[in-house]
């Protein structure tokens, strides 16, 4: 290991301020990760509320060039004890101008960048439904047409409890409501002679998909 770590601690109320300096005495650039060793959560340095580059999961990762000294510092909600931090990874690298110098792929983005999806705890659970609700209709869709009344769709419950469409054909019980509504709208536009190329493309795609997953259906 050619990288050394100097540490300095300052107890400050309920937190401990930690300062460190990494020094590379070797001839090649090193990629180093330093992890907090105190028993508390890490408060990484921020600029305008934004966490400094390289900080995540209670530690910092940086490149240290040959003969270079790289300082860092953070606070930790814990009492001071030595060692406050330690090097957990030290490896040689040929990349000399930062970890982001090589173009990355979509897979890299998914792996390396934070997940944008809302946490599961923040997603409301609707009783009796395992699918997403249909998106609210936008009164001014991209078609640019004036707001128009949605076509009235006739749905009749039969004696056996099944639901049939306007032509009397049974609607599968597992057809999502949003899909059924879209099909009804397309049917209404076809009946009115107002079908669009998008309708045709959508129907062809749906037909192909149905044939893929349910070859027996026509």
């Amino acid at each position: 290991m050619t990288v050394t770590l100097e540490r300095t601690l300052w107890p400050c109320g309920d937190v401990t301020l930690v300062a460190g300096v990494l020094e590379n005495e070797g001839a090649r650039t090193r990629r180093v990760r330093v992890a907090n060793a105190l028993d508390g959560s890490v408060l990484p340095p921020r600029t305008a509320g934004v966490i400094a580059d390289g900080w995540e999961d209670g530690g910092v990762e940086c490149l240290v060039g040959p003969g270079e000294r790289v300082p860092f510092g953070y606070a930790c909600r814990a009492t001071a004890s030595d060692p406050a931090c330690r090097i957990v990874r030290d490896e040689s690298t040929d990349r000399v101008d930062g970890p982001t110098s090589t173009p990355r792929t979509a897979a890299d983005a998914v792996r390396d960048l934070p997940d944008p999806r809302p946490p599961s705890a923040g997603v409301p659970i609707r009783a009796g439904s395992d699918s997403d609700p249909a998106p609210a209709a936008d009164p001014a869709s991209v078609t640019g047409r004036a707001v128009e009344t949605r076509p009235t769709v006739t749905r009749e419950a039969t004696g056996d409890g099944s639901v049939r469409d306007r032509g009397g054909r049974p609607i599968p019980a597992d057809l999502p409501p949003a899909v059924a509504a879209w099909l009804d709208e397309v049917a209404a536009r076809i009946d009115a002679g107002r079908a669009t190329s998008g309708d045709r493309r959508g129907l062809v795609a749906v037909g192909e998909r149905v044939r893929e997953i349910r070859p027996g259906d026509r």
């Binding site: 078609t143 640019g144 998008g198």
Partner: peptide, 16 residues
């Protein structure tokens, strides 16, 4: 979605 002033691939609005 085709046929409007701009062709759009919209995004859903639900958290789920």
């Amino acid at each position: 979605r085709e046929g409007g002033a701009v062709d759009v691939l919209p995004c859903g609005r639900t958290l789920a």
